[in-house]
């Protein structure tokens, strides 16, 4: 089997937030069809890491490449699903218009969406099973449905990398399970990275886990030790599995 293509590569990356180090010497790679979960406490640098990948922030030191290029040049190849809370539920926009937004990079400033753009938006909604809701106002949907629409918005531009920020926050366990199986399907075509402060949000569907608290401890395998988690969170952590989402059983680190 040929070596999988490198989608993201961090090499000796340092970043600062208000003069405090947010990321210290981060080294890791994400390959084609990887499914990586990055967990860590709030303020641990997760947002900074995402911002660097999304070209919203330049690292102080080190190099970052996305699809072999500078993150800013690869921006159109990344699909981003933001945290839930940042939009107005009453905003006059329907599912269709919200999904089309994801095509901005293809369409460009001043241009109208083309027929091809609309076809892509339609396919993206179809993939997340939300096409029948295309005329619904966004706030009328359930939390899980909204999440699906935002995934469709990210998928519309045919990304090679899908970034999800706290995707399981305030989503009930049943819907979490559905979202995970959707992501698992999408993994056939792209690398997926999800970021969360909630360790219970990382299900067994996630192939690899990295713990981030200024430094990154990367676990290429399917296991993670209490010790690493404690180091990351700096307080004792108990792993609790609940609901219908299957969670991994974590082994003792030798």
């Amino acid at each position: 089997m040929t070596k999988e293509k490198e989608i993201v590569k961090f090499k000796g990356v340092w970043a600062y937030y208000n003069h405090h180090p947010a990321l210290q010497d981060i080294n890791f790679s994400i390959h084609e069809k990887d499914f990586l979960g990055i967990i860590g406490p709030n303020g641990g640098g997760k947002t900074t890491l995402l911002k660097i990948i999304l070209c919203l922030l330049k690292p102080r030191r080190g190099t970052v490449t996305v699809l072999g290029k500078d993150p800013c040049e690869s921006r159109s190849q990344i699909g981003y699903v933001p945290q839930k809370s940042y939009f107005d539920k009453n905003f006059p926009i329907d599912v269709w218009q919200a999904t089309l937004m994801g095509l901005y990079n293809q369409t460009g400033l001043f241009r109208r969406y083309s027929r091809g753009d609309k076809k892509k938006a339609e396919e993206a909604l179809e993939r997340v099973s939300m096409l029948e809701y295309r005329n619904r106002q966004i706030g009328e949907l359930s939390g899980g449905q909204q999440k699906r629409v935002f995934i469709a918005r990210a998928l519309a531009s045919d990304p090679k990398l899908l970034l999800l920020d706290e995707p399981m926050e305030s989503v009930d366990p049943k819907v979490q399970g559905e979202l995970y199986s959707l992501l698992k399907e999408l993994q056939q075509e792209m690398a997926i990275v999800l970021v969360s402060h909630d360790i219970t949000a990382i299900s067994i569907y996630v192939d690899e886990i990295a713990c981030l608290n200024q430094t990154l401890v990367y676990h290429g395998t399917k296991e993670i030790s209490d010790e690493v988690l404690e180091d990351t969170y700096q307080c004792p952590i108990h792993l609790i599995a609940h609901g219908t989402v299957p969670h991994r059983v974590l082994k003792e680190h030798l």
Binding site: P82, F87, I93, L100, M101, Y104, T107, R153
Partner: peptide, 23 residues
């Protein structure tokens, strides 16, 4: 007319609009 989709995007979700490279 020229900036309809940009105005809509920025009004609805400014954070996402920035992420996808809109000025």
């Amino acid at each position: 007319a020229l900036l309809y989709k940009e105005f809509l995007a920025v009004s609805f979700d400014e954070e996402y609009s920035t992420v996808i490279g809109m000025p």
